[in-house]
Design a binder for these strands. Structure first.
Length: 873
RNA sequence: GGGCGCAUAGCUCAGCGGUAGAGCGCUCGCCUUACAAGCGAGAGGUCGCAGGUUCGACACCUGCUGCGCCCACCA
């Protein structure tokens, strides 16, 4: 065994910088693409959104993935572990706007060499309007610097990614993949465009998808409104009272709907009533989705107040009377269906107003007309919001692009649920969220966004003689020409002069939703079409790590795209990480202001310590941010260095030294079991259990085994070789078991060995992270372990009794015991006999005797300490 | 309304048919030739509640309670 190097250190100082540089230089984590698919382990790393800074939650979940990647690498797999940057989409746009004080206005001309203001304007409305091209240039500039910062954090944390594989979702290659996949969806009829009501965010001026919605409780009020009967269907027809939270939408009312079995409204079905204030005649209809318990049991259907309205509008084939536009204001022009002078006058008071203002005005109108019964009754109700927005969504009819996802097809839905069942979920119960989501889909996936920074939808439309686009037959680019921007590229067979001219063409203005591109990360990372050889070796991938909050978005959409393109899953395993909660158990989020900056944490505790904290959390479990766990991790890391310093400081073992002593063999037998446990846990993606088992063994190893054999290993006796050989094996194995969690200290200690013992038991040259994962069966076979593991437990028990006696007497642990008598059953006495010398030296016992119990009796350890001399009070 | 998860020591969490575990915190000790940023010892729990299965239940089953999350067309 080598003597300790002069550089051997027992602190964590500077390990990250030193080894980080070395790993980069040696290409320790470089992917070797010469392997076949079966020898490769490929990871579909989540590309973090590059719009600000990483936070503790990132550090947490990416560590989980890294432990698995490191385990697989040590198991001999060629690990394909890329990093991606999600620098495409709304978060980036927002950050660029605020960072530079600009906003994108497609009507503004491009400005060569645009320089942003030194300091952004204080108010959003004062931001400088710039062209789309200028805006995108700023997006690219900012994401580039953000990505450098992110990479530094990941390197410091010790992620074993191959940085040569890095991709970004807005790169030309990603755009090509995204557009190609979309065009193939289109060609197969999986993508289509449609003019239809969709959820619209009036702040961001874009349509949003079902997966991006969230409910928020908002105050509202029921307004009881009277609809006047029109008569003409018999004298029983009278007034109808409806309750609504959206009185401003009375002008958009197209029907009243009640349940077919609701006795209160039976006589009204088939008749019509007049809307208050406007006097528009609307039918009273029956539909089974109306709920007698809600409001007055009869609903005002408007185009469109909520998704229920859309459903009734579609199923009952109602008129369309929309007045709310994309800006969230009521149309300035008087709607055509208001034919009477009083109705037009009333609308004039609403025209052009925001929804909020229009509601106040409308309530006044209703009050004046006497159609508002009583006062509005305040309630709290759930309202749909875009998850990134802060104003309620409206429903606006627009032309949008969709990808079929089963929302309108039970057959497709069943196929996608079946895909979910094929997938190995870690933890398993997370599969319910997937099934829940797919079963609850109520429409196809809306992928077009009316934004600027993203992947353009690669289509043009022919314009007829009047300049109207032919949306049914888009002009499709050749795949070889991708990526294209229909706003600047000209379709084949046209000239630039024909853009937006009658008889010419127009480019699709929309971009794709960010999920439409990130749903293709396996294709992007694995080089779909661009590098068929790489693709064949890495796809379908092995692992998708991600947060459980994006099952409905990222996970599901990736499954959809792969299902279409390959008829298979994109990966076999998905590992879900939980969230980091602050100490109050709230989700840590930038908006809450409770975010801890990862770099500070890494500097304060060290990367290994932070990784220890992260890896202690069971897969999928939300975990409180807890610096005390990092302190424990730091302690563990220091302890590993110190234990190794001790082991390497011993005189070298002879090359042929055999493990002969019972206690040494017992320790190795336990070690073999530990290897089995840790390996099984890792194979099941339970890194936390592997860490816990290893850590538990390690502390016992230090406290008991090391103490027991220390003296024997130091001295040059006939049985010293056994202890030294066993220690060497144990240190080598433990370092490797810890390596996925504590890459820095294990690498440091591994470097002290300086020799190459061969792959099985000892140390191998080069990085520990390229060493082979230990194998319990091999350890047993090579070390010929017929050892009885209980010998170590029994010896540790007796040692504990000796320590307790000294502790009770307030003596030092090293204080001499004049005599110790172990009284116990036969087998245990035999074990004690086998380790007598070690027990005597570890306990500093002058005379150790054993007494075998017969006929029951109590097992005890009797410890005699010398009389104390004068003890000062 | 539907689904999922959780409930074990003061705190954070393991365990899971066979006499309740770890770390932190707390108490009392100890300079011990790897480690005082360390080491040793100790106190502390009717394992949410109620039934059931079993020779035996913290663990398995049923119901309940509380907390959290996911989903839902929320007039």
């Amino acid at each position: 065994m080598a003597s300790p190097q002069p550089t051997a250190q027992s602190t964590l100082d500077n390990l990250e910088a030193r080894w980080g540089e070395r790993w980069e230089h040696d290409g320790t984590y470089r992917f070797d693409r010469t392997h076949d698919r079966g020898e490769i382990y490929s990871v579909d790393t989540p590309p973090p959104t590059v719009s600000g800074s990483l936070h503790v939650g990132h550090v947490f979940s990416y560590t989980h993935t890294d432990t698995i990647a490191r385990f697989q690498r040590m198991r001999g797999r060629a690990v394909f572990y890329p990093m991606g940057w999600d620098d495409n989409g709304l978060p980036t746009e927002r950050r660029v706007e605020n960072y530079f004080g600009v906003r994108c206005d497609p009507s503004v001309a491009y400005q060569e060499g645009f320089v942003s203001p030194a300091k952004p304007a204080a108010k959003r409305q004062d931001y400088i309007a710039i062209s789309r091209r200028n805006f995108i240039e700023l997006c690219e500039r900012l994401t580039e610097t953000d990505e450098k910062v992110f990479e530094q954090v990941w390197r410091l944390l010790g992620l074993s990614v191959d940085w040569s594989l890095t991709y970004s979702t807005v790169s030309a290659r990603s755009q090509r993949v995204s557009q190609r996949a979309f065009l193939r969806n289109l060609a197969r009829g999986e993508a289509y465009s449609s003019e239809a009501p969709c959820l619209w965010d009036i702040t961001f001026q874009t349509a949003v998808a079902q997966a991006e919605l969230e409910d928020r409780d908002r105050p509202g009020a029921y307004h009881d409104l009277r609809f006047a009967g029109t008569g003409g269907h018999g004298d029983v027809v009278g007034d109808v009272i409806i309750a609504t939270t959206r009185p401003e939408l009375v002008v958009s009312c197209v029907a009243l709907v009640a349940h077919p079995d609701d006795e209160r409204y039976q006589s009204l079905f088939g008749s019509s009533v007049r809307t208050p204030v406007f006097g528009v005649e609307v039918p009273v209809l029956a539909h089974h989705r109306a709920e007698p318990d809600k409001g007055t049991g009869i609903a005002m259907v408007c185009t469109f107040g909520d998704l229920a309205d859309v459903m009734w509008w579609r199923e009952l084939e109602l008129d369309t009377r929309a007045v709310i536009g994309k800006t969230g204001r009521l149309d300035a022009e008087t709607p055509s269906w208001l034919t009477t002078e009083p109705a037009q006058a009333a609308y004039a008071r609403l025209a052009g107003k925001t929804i909020f203002a229009a509601q106040r005005e409308m309530v006044e109108l209703l009050r004046d007309s006497g159609d508002l019964l009583g006062e509005p009754r305040p309630i709290t109700h759930a309202v749909k919001f875009y998850e990134k927005g802060d104003r309620p969504l409206e429903i606006v009819t627009t032309r949008q692009w969709y990808i079929r996802n089963g929302g309108r097809s039970p057959e497709l839905r069943a196929e996608l649920i079946a895909r979910g069942k094929e997938l190995d979920w870690h933890p398993d119960h997370m599969r319910h969220r997937y099934e829940n989501w797919v079963e609850g889909l109520n429409g196809d996936w809306l992928v077009s966004r009316q934004r600027f920074f993203g992947v353009p939808i690669p289509l043009w439309y022919r314009l007829d003689g009047e300049g109207c686009p032919d949306y049914e037959h888009p002009i499709v680019p050749d795949e070889a020409a991708l990526p294209i921007d229909p706003q600047s590229h000209v379709p084949p067979g046209y000239t630039a002069q024909q853009r937006d001219q009658p008889g010419g063409f127009t480019g699709e203005p929309d971009i794709m939703d960010t999920w439409a591109t990130s749903s293709l990360t396996p294709q992007i990372a694995c080089g779909w079409e661009d590098d068929p050889d790489l693709f064949a070796r890495t796809f379908p991938m092995d692992l998708r790590p991600q947060g459980h909050d994006i099952i409905r978005t990222w996970l599901f959409s990736t499954v959809v795209r792969s299902h279409y393109e390959y008829g298979s899953l994109p990966w076999q395993h998905v590992a879900l990480s939980g969230w980091i909660l602050d100490p109050d158990r709230k989700k840590m989020a930038k908006s809450r202001g409770n975010v801890v900056v990862p770099t500070e944490m890494l500097e304060q505790y060290g990367a290994d310590a932070v990784r220890y904290w992260a890896a202690s959390a069971r897969p999928g479990i939300d975990t409180a941010f807890d610096p005390s766990q990092m302190k424990i991790g730091r302690r563990l890391a220091v302890k590993v260095l110190n234990a190794c310093k001790f082991a390497f400081g011993l005189p070298p073992a002879r090359a042929d030294a055999a493990v002969t002593e019972a206690i040494d063999r017992a320790m190795l037998a336990q070690l073999a079991t530990l290897i089995d446990d840790a390996t099984r846990a890792f194979d099941n993606y339970d890194y936390a259990r592997a860490l816990q088992a290893t850590e538990e063994f390690f502390w016992r190893f230090c406290d008991d085994y090391l103490e027991l054999v220390k003296v024997r290993a130091y001295q040059d006796g006939p049985d010293s070789g056994s202890a030294r050989a066993a220690l060497r094996i144990a240190v080598s194995v433990l370092l490797r078991l810890f390596a996925p969690f504590l890459p820095y200290v294990t690498e440091e200690a591994w470097s002290w060995a300086q020799t190459d013992d061969g792959p099985l038991l000892g140390f191998t040259a080069g990085s520990i992270h390229r060493a082979s994962w230990p194998d319990g069966a091999e350890l047993r076979s090579v070390a010929l372990l017929d050892g009885d593991p209980s010998v170590l437990f029994i010896a540790a028990d007796v040692l504990r009794q000796i320590r307790k006696a000294k502790s009770d007497a307030k003596r030092s642990v090293r204080a001499e015991a004049t005599s110790v008598t172990v009284i116990d059953s036969g087998p245990r006495i035999a074990a004690v006999q086998a380790v007598l010398a070690d027990l005597r030296s570890a306990g500093n016992v002058r005379q150790l005797t054993t007494v075998e119990l017969t006929n029951g009796g109590e097992a005890t350890v009797d410890v005699q300490l010398p009389e104390t001399e004068s003890v000062a009070p």
